[in-house]
Design a protein around this nucleic acid. Structure first.
Length: 439
RNA sequence: CGGGGAGUAGCUCAGCCUGGUAGAGCACCGGCUUUGGGAGCCGGGGGCCGCAGGUUCAAAUCCUGUCUCCCCGACCA
C-alpha cells in the first residue's frame, strides 16, 4: 500500500479524551475513531489488525474442532425470558422494540440463542459432542465505558459453546478450549496466564480467565513467576488426545485474580522470590455451566436407554476487539506501537527519504514490487514530507520492519534495515533486504 | 448509579472572573527557501464558542435548563 493513497489520519497530539496508552496510540495512529461513548469506527489500519487477530482466533478454533457459524446481533426477548436472564441482566442489556411492538435486544452474549438452535435440531446422544462458535459484535450498555476499545459498549467477541452428554464430555471440551486458548494468545505474541475464576453457583474448577500481564490492566493478579517461562506452543497438539495432563500442568501453580485471591494459599504455595503481584487484562474466559441453560430451555437428548437428559454445556469467550488494545498495552514504547509480527497491520514500512531523487525512487519501487510479489504487506511511504515526519509516523504505527531508502545508501547499493523493537539496525544490500524481511 | 471535571477551528488549548461581535500553536491551501529525526518565511481558507431559553442596547463571557464527553468509585469480555 502506498501511504500517499492510504486513509490513515494520524494525529500529532494526544486527544484529550484518551487516558491510557493503547487508546491514545490507536487514535493517533488513525486506527479508530470514536462514534459515541464506548462505540468506535475501525479505520483501515485498525481494521487490518482486528482482522488478523480474528483470523488467528478462527484458525485455532477450527484446529480444535470447533465449527464456525454466525448468529444475529438482534435477538428476541422471549428466549431470554425462558432462561430467566431477561430480568436478571438489568440495564446492561440494550432493549429494543420493533415496529410490531415485540421486545428485542442487542445480544450481549449468545447462550440462549445457541441453545435454541441446538434444541431444535439435536435430539439424540449420538449427535454429541458438538462444539460451535461464532465471531460477532456484542453490545453491553456499560455504565461507564473506558479505556478506548478495551472496555467499550460495542465489542467483537469470539464465543464458543460446547454440548456434551455428561460431565466427562464437557470436561474434554473445556480442555480443548483451554489448550486452543494457550495457542491462540501465544501466536499473537502474548503471554496469557490461565487464572482460576469464579464458577458461581455451578461450582467446580472449570472456569479460567486468561490474563495477560500489563501494568495498565484492570484487574489485580497474583501468580507464580514460573508461568512466564512456560511454552504454550507445545508442538503437535492432538485435540483427540487426553489433554488433561496439559491442563494440569498449566493449573498446577498458583494464579488468581484479586476476586479469587487467597493470600494464605498464595504464601504457602509460592516461594517469596517467585511471587508475582501485578496487574492484568482479561482477554479470554472459559466456563463450564452444566445444564443451566439446557434445563431451563429444554435442550435435552435421548440416551441409549431411552431416557432424556439435558445436555451439559460450556461457553468460551475471547475479546477479539479488546485484544487489539491489550496487545498495544503489552507492546509499545514512547514513540508508538510495537506490533508482534503475527498481528501487525503491515509487516514492512518502506521509507523513501527523498521522493524527488530518481535513484532513490527506483530503488523503493523495486523493493515495493519485490516484497509485494512475495506476499509481504508493505506500507510504502512515498509521501513528500521530511524524513523526521516519516520516521515518527513509521514508529507510531509500529510496523515490525522498517526499510529506509535514501540517496546516500542507494549510491552504494545499500538500504537501512531496522526492526521496530530495536534489535536490528544495519545497512545491507537491496537483495539482502528483500530476503531478510521476507524470512 | 454516586462523586468530580470539560464542551471555543481537524488536534492541543487561550479568551469567560471584570459582557462590546473570535484568538494562538500544530494541521490544511498557495508561493519561495529548505531537505537523514515532527523545518523557515510570506500569503490564505476554515468556527450557529454543544444545544435551548432568559437577562441586557449588546452574551463565548452572566442566569436557568438540557445534551454530550472525560476522570474516580461501585459493576463487567
Amino acid at each position: 500500500m502506498r501511504l500517499s493513497r492510504y486513509f490513515m489520519p494520524t494525529l500529532r497530539e494526544n486527544p484529550a479524551e484518551a487516558q491510557i496508552v493503547s487508546h491514545r496510540l490507536m487514535l493517533r495512529a488513525g486506527m479508530i475513531r470514536q462514534s459515541s461513548a464506548g462505540i468506535y469506527s475501525w479505520l483501515p489500519l485498525g481494521f487490518r489488525v482486528l482482522k488478523k487477530i480474528e483470523n488467528i482466533v478462527r484458525e485455532e478454533q477450527d484446529a480444535a474442532g470447533c465449527q464456525e457459524l454466525l448468529m444475529p446481533t438482534i435477538q428476541p426477548a422471549d428466549l431470554w425470558r425462558e432462561s430467566g436472564r431477561y430480568d436478571d441482566y438489568g440495564k446492561e442489556m440494550l432493549r429494543i422494540t420493533d415496529r410490531h411492538d415485540r421486545d428485542m435486544l442487542f445480544g450481549p452474549t449468545n447462550e440462549e440463542l445457541i441453545t435454541d438452535i441446538f434444541r431444535n435440531s439435536v435430539k439424540s446422544y449420538r449427535d454429541l459432542p458438538r462444539l460451535l462458535y461464532h465471531i460477532q459484535w456484542k453490545f453491553r450498555d456499560e455504565v461507564r465505558p473506558r479505556f478506548g476499545i478495551m472496555r467499550g459498549r460495542e465489542f467483537l467477541m469470539k464465543d464458543s459453546y460446547s454440548f456434551d452428554l455428561d460431565y466427562e464430555g464437557a470436561r474434554r471440551a473445556y480442555n480443548k478450549m483451554f489448550v486452543a486458548y494457550l495457542r491462540t494468545f501465544a501466536r499473537m505474541g502474548l503471554k496469557a496466564i490461565p487464572m482460576a475464576a469464579d464458577t458461581g453457583p455451578i461450582g467446580g474448577d472449570l472456569s479460567h480467565e486468561f490474563i495477560i500481564l500489563a501494568d495498565t490492566g484492570e484487574s489485580e493478579v497474583f501468580c507464580h513467576a514460573d508461568y512466564l517461562d512456560f511454552d504454550p506452543m507445545m508442538s503437535g497438539v492432538d485435540y483427540e488426545d487426553d489433554l488433561q495432563p496439559v491442563v494440569d500442568e498449566w493449573t498446577r501453580l498458583y494464579a488468581a485474580t484479586d476476586e479469587m485471591h487467597d493470600p494464605v494459599a498464595f504464601a504457602e504455595q509460592v516461594p517469596e522470590d517467585k511471587a508475582l503481584h501485578t496487574r492484568g487484562i482479561e482477554v479470554g474466559h472459559i466456563f463450564y455451566f452444566g445444564a443451566k441453560y439446557s434445563e431451563a430451555m429444554g435442550a435435552t437428548v435421548q440416551q441409549a436407554d431411552g431416557t432424556e437428559v439435558p445436555v451439559e454445556m460450556g461457553s468460551y469467550g475471547i475479546g477479539v476487539s479488546r485484544l487489539v488494545g491489550a496487545i498495544i498495552e503489552a507492546s509499545h514504547d514512547d514513540a508508538g506501537i510495537i506490533w508482534p509480527e503475527a498481528v501487525a497491520p503491515f509487516r514492512v514500512g518502506l521509507i523513501n527519504l527523498k521522493v524527488d531523487d530518481s535513484a532513490t525512487r527506483e530503488t523503493c519501487e523495486r523493493l515495493y514490487a519485490e516484497l509485494s510479489a512475495k506476499g509481504m504487506d508493505v506500507l510504502y511511504d512515498d509521501t513528500d514530507v521530511r524524513a523526521g515526519v516519516k520516521f515518527a509516523t513509521s514508529e507510531l504505527i509500529g510496523t515490525p520492519w522498517q526499510l529506509v531508502v535514501g540517496p546516500r545508501g542507494v549510491a552504494s547499493g545499500l538500504v537501512e534495515l531496522k526492526s521496530r523493537d530495536g534489535d536490528v539496525n544495519e545497512e545491507i544490500s537491496i537483495d539482502a533486504a528483500v530476503t531478510r524481511v521476507s524470512g
